[in-house]
Nucleic acid binder design. Sequence first.
DNA 1: GTGAAGGGCCAC
DNA 2: AAACGTGGCCCTTCAC
Length: 589
Amino acid sequence: MEVFFELIKDESSLRAACEQLSKEPVLGFDTETTALDPYLGELRLVQFSTGKRSVIIDLRLFGDDPSSNPALVPLRSLIAAETPVKVAHNSKFDAKWVRHHLGCELGGIFDSYLASLLIAAGESERRHSLADVVQFFVGTELDKSQQVSDWSANELSQVQLEYAARDAAILLPLYSQMTERLKADDLTRVAELEFKAVMPVAQMELTGFFLDQDRWKENITRTKADRDVIADELQEMLAAGVSQVSLFGRSEINLDSQAQVHDALTNLGVPVPESTRASQLEPLAEGFPVVAKLLEYRTLQKALTSFGENYLEFIHPKTGRVHSDFRQIGAPTGRFSCSNPNLQQIPHETAYRRCFRAGDGRTLVVADYSQIELRILADFSGDKNFIGAFENGADFHAAAAAQVFKVKAEDVSPDQRSFAKRLNFGVVYGLGAARFAAMTGLSQAEAEGTLRRYFATYPDLDGYLRKSGDSALRTRLARTASGRLLKIRFDENDRAAAGSAKRFGTNMPIQGTSADILKRALSLIHEELRETSARLVNIVHDEIVLECDEADADEISQKLRNAMVAAGREYIKAVPIDVEVAISKEWAK
DNA sequence: GTGAAGGGCCAC
DNA sequence: AAACGTGGCCCTTCAC
C-alpha cells in the first residue's frame, strides 16, 4: 500500500497542515513513542491521515518541552477538538502521551480497539491488535514490524516514516467498515459511551494513586511476624501425622502445597473434603484445631504474597505513585479490569485501605453507588414490592426481610435480615437452593421453602429472571441498558454448560448496566471537574475515588454525587439512585 | 528456565 | 439434574 505523506519540520508548515486537516470530518490518528511509559519516554511522532494523505509531525524539532511551545498551538487545538473525529487504535495510549507531553486532551475519539471488543461481544477467541482488526474488517495485511523500531534515532528512516504514515492511513477504511458494523449491531450508543470514558481513564492512569510506603511496610512486618508464629505452630501440629518418616527430627511440609497439606490432614484423621478451600474447611475448624490453624495461616500468607512487597515494586520512581493499568472493557459484561497492580482487590480492612491516601494538602473524595445492581434489577423487573423495598427507608435488606417473612419492619430478626440479604445478592447470580442451604446452614427443604417464599413476595422479579434467562438461552444474546451486547456460546447437549450460560445471560444485563452507569458517570465527572483541582485516582465497579485540594472537597463531593446520580438516572427510571460520598484523607470508610 | 493449568482467595 | 456472576494474581505442579 502506497501512502503519500508530508513530514512536518517547522512552525509554518505545521500551521498550514493543521488548518487543512481541521476541515476534515474524520482523521486517522497515531503516535510513535520511544517507550511505553509516558513518564519515561519521548513522544516522537504525531500522525494524522485523511486516508489518501498522511501528515507526520516530528516533535523532536519543536524543542525539549512541547507542552510549552507556542508553535504547537494549532496542533493542540486540532487534537483537542471534538471534530474532526480521531480514529485511533487503543486511544488510551495516545491520549496519555498527548496529555503528558503536549498538555492537551484527545478529543473526538473513535477507538477501533474498543469498537472491535464491542462487536466481538464476548467472543474470546477473537484478537484485537490493529493488524488483527484490519485483517478482519478491511481484509488487508498490516506489517507491524516497525512498531518496535528505534524511534529515538535522530534521522528516522524512510521505512519508519512510511510505516507511521500507513498506520494512520489504514484507520480511515477501518473506521468506515466499523461504523457500519456498529450501526448494524445496534452498538452505536454503547460505543459512544466507551469512547467518552477513554480520556478520564487515561488521565486516571497518568495521575496514579498515592501508596504510603511506610504504612504498607508496617503491615508487612506485622503480618510476617504473625505468619511465622502460625506457620511454626501449624508445622508442629501437622508433624504429628508424618514425623515417623523422618530421621532428622520434624519433617517440614510445604504449607502452600495443596497436596501435602491434604495428605498431612488425612494422616491426622481429619475427614478432609476433596477441596481444601476455606468454605469447605470452615465447618471442620471447630472440631479440629489444626484446621483452624491452617485457615489462619492461609489468610496471613495470602496477605503477604498478594498484598506485600509486590505492591511496592509498582511505585513509580518519577511520581512516587502507583499507576495501574485499567482495561475499560475488561470483562465481556463491560466491567473494568485492573492490573499491575490490581487496585480493585485491595482487602477491605482499614490496615490496607488506609495505605492508599491523598498527597499533602490534598484529600480523597470516595463515592459509591448504594446497591446499584439490585436497583437495576428492580427497575428491569418492574416488581412493585421489590421497588417498594428501596423506598421504605434506608435498610433495603431489612425492608425485604419484612416483606418476605411478613413481619413488621421493627420485628425483623437478625437471621431474617441475613437470609434476605443473601438472597438479594444471590438472585442476581442465579443462586440455587443447595448453595443457599450450604451458606446459611438451612436444610435443603428449608432453603427451598425460603426461596419459594422470596419469589412469591416478588412475582414480577421471578418472572423477569425466568424470562431473561430463557431469552438468553433461546437467542444466545443478552444486552445491557446502553445496548452493550453479549453473544452466548454453549453446547446445548451439555446441561451444566447450558445452566451456566443461562446464569451468565441473566446476570450480564445487570452487571453490565452497572458498568454502563459507571462509565457514563466518568465522562460526566470529567467534563464537570476539568478545570478544578480534582483528579480521578481509582474506580472499583460501583465506586469512584477522586483526589482534590482540601479546600475544594465539599464542592467536589457535591459535583461528584450529582454526576453519579445523573448517570444512574439516564438508565434507571423506576428506582431512586443513591450515592454515598465520604471525604477522607485515606481510602477507608 | 518457562509456561500453562489448577486450586485458592482478594475485590465488587 | 443442575450447584452463584465478573475479574487479577499468588503458589504448586507438571510438561517441555
